[in-house]
Design a protein around this nucleic acid. Structure first.
Length: 492
RNA sequence: CGGAGUGUAGUGUAACGGUAGCAUUCGUGCUUUGGGAGCAUGCGAUCCGGGUUCGAAUCCCGGCACUCCGACCA
């Protein structure tokens, strides 16, 4: 016990966060490295969180009229080549399928049957989807087309990072086609807003919404809207994006329609997505030295019930009571787990704390005598004796409180660690000595961003939508006129 | 692909060139069970290939793997 706690303390958030959170992930049974380079294994209790995330997002999308569909994993190389900027952006990280069988040669299996045209394992599905869109869309009556796909994708990243940048990951990608620029523009912003609400309300992670600078935007997009979250070590994490694709792809893939005046028009498109990186964001946003803390709204189990007994007779009585409590809570829609395993209760307490279950309910012979239970919340860690009548109500209230407190803490962290600076010396000093976001003016010259990155390691995360866009001033680096204020941070 | 570093039981570690040890995990048995149990007992390792040496985990050469730093990124 001593050694394990020490282990977590040595690598605190301040000093060596990356190592620390890897420990927590392993401890929390969330995911681990797979034998395949840079890929991940998501264990059942981590996947359950992903399923809850899917459920909520999927219903939000459908409320807006989006339909789910599925497209092939393999993309013909020629498809990817059609949009110049797009192929350039992804060329360096493609897994390429060149053969279709294995043959035995000198006792070894070697690839055989070379394909005439290689396939790319999708790094994203714009091209293969829009090939279909061009055949689906003929008339202005077919618009808008709102399609979403849940799938896995593969990007052969140079440097994978567990949960945050794995070679293969699961995600959702929405693709829409519209008759007008205004409509597509509105959709881009609407979706980033959907993500923002979801992050705040369900994941309890506070965000900055903004637009990517030209150097950071999606290859093939007119602009990219992004949500940037701050992790506990002050680094930024791009948590989701929504791209205004303009007519770049529709012109390459001939996605066109006849308008009311019988004129041929190219559609205006958007695409937007969030991935299993969310799981990494959750771990890094909501963990403490005891392990993970899962926001109640997306937790697989919101309450874990620990029965305590010594003799067989006590076991019978206690288990009957556990069953009763479980039914009562589930009737109120609360997700419960009763840990009926043999073994010491203390061991179970630590285990479920590490895994981040928001509430623990203990019940033993003494509690049954007193008509009460012991309830401990994951944030405070304080034991409360709660009478049987108030039990369910208490659980509901505390779960809501935990959800709110997590968001409050996340917001506080972000606000307390966001600083405005007005000259470059101050900028450099701030990056070096303080963690967090830096907010300052920046001109459109790519050289400025790049030099700042080389000098300090901080990158331009986004132009915040609330007061960054059109906020004029002098560029922090070259002192020429700047149209926008930009958020800088060291990022994952 | 460039720069640096590290390879010892499942995990974490120790061993001036001289018996590969410790902790933990795991298996088994007994005793325990309201905050990570105790005792006994058992299984388990020097990345691969070559060289130097009476003798290599240790020194040298080559490979491989991993980690970190750059370029890339949801």
């Amino acid at each position: 016990m001593k050694e394990k706690t020490e282990n977590l303390k040595i690598t605190t958030r301040e000093n060596d966060f990356s190592q620390w959170y890897l420990d927590v992930i392993r401890e929390a049974d969330l995911a681990e490295n797979s034998p395949v380079r840079g890929c991940m294994v998501i264990k059942p209790c981590g996947y359950a969180i992903w399923e809850n995330i899917q459920k909520v997002l999927d219903s939000e999308f459908k409320k807006l009229g989006t339909q789910n569909a599925y497209f092939p994993l393999l993309i013909p190389k020629s498809f990817l080549e059609k949009e110049a900027e797009h192929v350039e952006g992804f060329a360096k990280e493609c897994a390429v399928v060149t053969h279709h069988r294995l043959e035995e040669k000198n006792g070894k299996l070697v690839p055989a049957g070379e394909l005439e045209e290689p396939f790319i394992i999708r790094p994203t599905s714009e091209t293969i989807m829009y090939d279909s869109f061009s055949r689906w869309i003929h008339s202005y009556r077919d618009l808008p087309l709102l399609i979403n796909q849940w799938c896995n994708i593969m990007r052969w990243e140079m440097r994978p990072r567990l949960l945050l940048r794995t070679s293969e990951f699961l995600w959702q990608e929405g693709h829409t086609a519209h008759a007008t620029k205004e409509e597509a523009n509105a959709k881009t912003l609407e979706m980033i807003e959907v993500y923002k609400k979801f992050f705040e309300e369900y994941l309890a992670i506070s965000l900055v919404v903004g637009k990517k600078t030209d150097t950071e935007k999606f290859p093939g997009a007119d602009y990219t809207a992004t949500i940037e979250a701050m992790m506990q070590d002050g680094k930024a994490l791009q948590a989701g994006t929504s791209h205004m694709l303009g007519q770049n792809f529709s012109k390459s893939f001939d996605v066109s329609f006849l308008d009311e005046n019988q004129q041929k028009q190219y559609v205006w498109q958007t695409s937007w997505g969030v991935s299993t990186r969310i799981l990494g964001a959750l771990v890094m946003a909501h963990s403490d030295d005891k392990g993970f803390i899962i926001p109640p709204k997306i937790a697989q189990f919101q309450v874990v019930i620990i029965p305590i007994w010594t003799t067989d007779e006590e076991k019978k009585v206690v288990f009957a009571e556990v069953e009763k409590i479980k039914i009562e809570l589930e009737k109120e829609g609360i997700r419960c787990k009763a840990d009926a395993r043999e073994g010491r209760p203390g061991f179970k307490y630590f285990e479920w704390e590490r895994k981040g279950v928001p509430l623990r309910l203990e019940i033993g012979p003494k509690d049954i005598q007193k008509n009460s239970v012991v309830i401990v919340d994951r944030l405070q860690g304080k034991k409360e004796f709660v009478s049987n009548e108030k039990r369910t109500q208490y659980v509901k209230v505390v779960l809501e409180n935990i959800q709110k407190t997590l968001l409050k803490n996340s917001k506080k962290l972000r606000e307390e660690n966001t600083r405005e600076v007005s000259n470059y010396e101050e900028f450099k000093e701030t990056v070096k000595s303080k963690k967090g976001f830096i907010y300052t003016h920046l001109c459109k010259d790519n050289k400025c961003v790049e030099t700042i990155k080389e000098d300090t390691g901080a990158t331009a995360r986004c132009i915040p939508m609330d007061d960054g866009e059109g906020n004029k001033g002098k560029c922090i680096y070259c002192n020429k006129n700047a149209d926008n204020k930009v958020l800088f941070a060291v990022s994952y």
